[in-house]
C-alpha cells in the first residue's frame, strides 16, 4: 500500500512537470520565439487557458504527499525553506506578470511584464530542478529534519548546500528539458512566425538536452554515489532510463517530419520516463538522507486508515481532474481564438 502511494505521488509530480513544463518552457523561450509585442501576445494566448490549471498539479501532488507521507513533506518543506520561499515568490511573480500582461494594454509596461514572465519561467524549473538534484544527492538529515543554506561548498565535497555543481547541473537540465517541451508545444499550437521559430528550436534544444543529460548523468556517479548505484542496478530504472533517450530522439525525428503534435507527446514521454527512472532509483526513499540510514522512506506512511481513505478519494478525484484537462484541451482548439 505505501508503495502504491509512492507511485501515485510520482505520477502527480510527473503530471505537473509534463503540463506546467510546457508553459514554463514557452515563457523561457518568449524572447527567442517572439520578436514583436504582438507575437509575444500570441505566446501568452497559447498558454492562457492552461497555465493556472497546470500549477494545480503541484499543489495536488503536495497534498497527496501530505496525506500519505506527512513526515516526508514536513522534512522536505522545512529543510528546503529558503528554496521553497523562492519558488513561492517566483510563482506569484509569474502569475502577476501573466495577469498584468493580459489587463494592461500599454506597450511600455507590456515589455516589463514580458521580461518578468520570462525570468520567472526560467527561475522555476531551475529552482525545482535544483531541489530534485538535492533529493538525488541526499540531504544532511538528522532526527528533527534538516536545514540547507543556499550555498556551502559549491564543489559539493564538504558541507552540503542547496546549490552545488551537481544540483546546478540538474537545474540546468530541468530548464533545457522544459524549454524543449515548451518549444514543442508552441510548434504544435502556433502557426506563423512564432510556430516556425519554435519548430526551428526543437532540434537544437534536443541536442542541448542530450549533452547536458550526459554531463548530469556522469555527475551523478561522482556526486551521488548511492543514487547512481541504484540507477545502474535496478531493472525498472534501467528500462525507463533507456526509453528516455529514445523518446528524446523521437521528438527530434517527429518534429522533422512535421508531426508537431506527436513530437510534443514524445517530449512529454521523455520528461515522464526520465522522472520515472529517477523515481525507481530513489525508491523507497522520499527524502534521501546523508547518511542513508536516516532517509525518510515509504515506511513513514500515515497509517493504513489514512491511506485507504486517501486511495478512495484519489480514485474519484484523479479521473475528474484528468477529465477537466481533456475538456480544456478540446475546448481550446489549436491556433487559439
Amino acid at each position: 500500500m505505501p508503495d502504491v502511494f509512492y507511485v501515485l505521488v510520482c505520477v502527480m509530480i510527473t503530471a505537473f512537470v509534463v503540463l506546467d513544463g510546457f508553459d514554463f518552457g514557452a515563457g523561457a523561450l518568449l524572447f527567442l520565439v517572439a520578436r514583436t509585442p504582438d507575437e509575444r501576445r500570441r505566446v501568452h494566448r497559447a498558454i492562457g487557458p492552461f497555465w493556472d490549471g497546470n500549477e494545480v498539479w503541484l499543489l495536488a501532488a503536495a497534498g497527496l504527499l501530505f496525506a500519505a507521507f506527512p513526515r516526508a513533506l514536513a522534512a522536505a518543506m522545512s529543510g528546503f525553506y529558503l528554496g521553497m520561499v523562492l519558488v513561492i515568490w517566483l510563482f506569484i511573480g509569474r502569475a502577476l506578470a501573466i495577469e498584468l500582461r493580459h489587463h494592461v494594454e500599454d506597450a511600455l509596461f507590456a515589455g516589463l511584464f514580458d521580461v518578468l514572465f520570462c525570468a520567472a519561467s526560467l527561475g522555476l524549473p531551475l529552482t525545482l530542478g535544483i531541489a530534485l538534484g538535492n533529493l538525488i544527492r541526499g540531504v544532511p538529515l538528522e532526527e528533527g529534519g534538516f536545514a540547507l543554506p543556499f550555498f556551502a561548498d559549491l564543489a559539493g565535497r564538504g558541507e552540503k548546500g542547496l546549490i552545488d555543481v551537481f544540483t546546478l547541473a540538474s537545474g540546468v537540465v530541468a530548464v533545457l528539458a522544459t524549454s524543449l517541451h515548451g518549444a514543442a508545444f508552441l510548434a504544435w499550437r502556433e502557426d506563423g512566425p512564432v510556430g516556425e521559430r519554435a519548430r526551428a528550436l526543437v532540434p537544437r534544444l534536443v541536442v542541448a538536452v542530450a549533452i547536458l543529460l550526459v554531463v548530469a548523468g556522469a555527475a551523478t556517479f561522482v556526486f551521488a554515489g548511492p543514487a547512481a548505484a541504484a540507477l545502474r542496478s535496478r531493472p525498472t530504472a534501467i528500462t525507463f532510463g533507456a526509453l528516455a533517450p529514445l523518446l528524446l530522439g523521437a521528438a527530434r525525428w517527429l518534429s522533422g517530419k512535421g508531426r508537431a503534435r506527436d513530437a510534443f507527446l514524445a517530449s512529454a514521454g521523455f520528461l515522464a520516463t526520465t522522472l520515472a527512472s529517477i523515481a525507481a532509483a530513489q525508491h523507497p526513499y522520499l527524502v534521501r538522507g546523508i547518511p542513508e540510514a536516516l532517509s525518510i522512506g515509504t515506511d513513514s506512511h500515515a497509517g493504513s486508515t489514512s491511506l485507504h481513505a486517501a486511495l478512495a478519494w484519489f480514485a474519484i478525484g484523479f479521473p475528474l481532474a484528468c477529465t477537466y484537462v481533456g475538456v480544456i484541451f478540446r475546448y481550446e482548439r489549436r491556433g487559439g481564438a
Binding site: A60, A62, G63
Partner: peptide
C-alpha cells in the same frame, strides 16, 4: 493531509 489533498483534487 486528507482534506488539504482533497481540496486540490476536487
Amino acid at each position: 493531509g486528507q482534506t488539504l489533498g482533497m481540496e486540490s483534487l476536487f
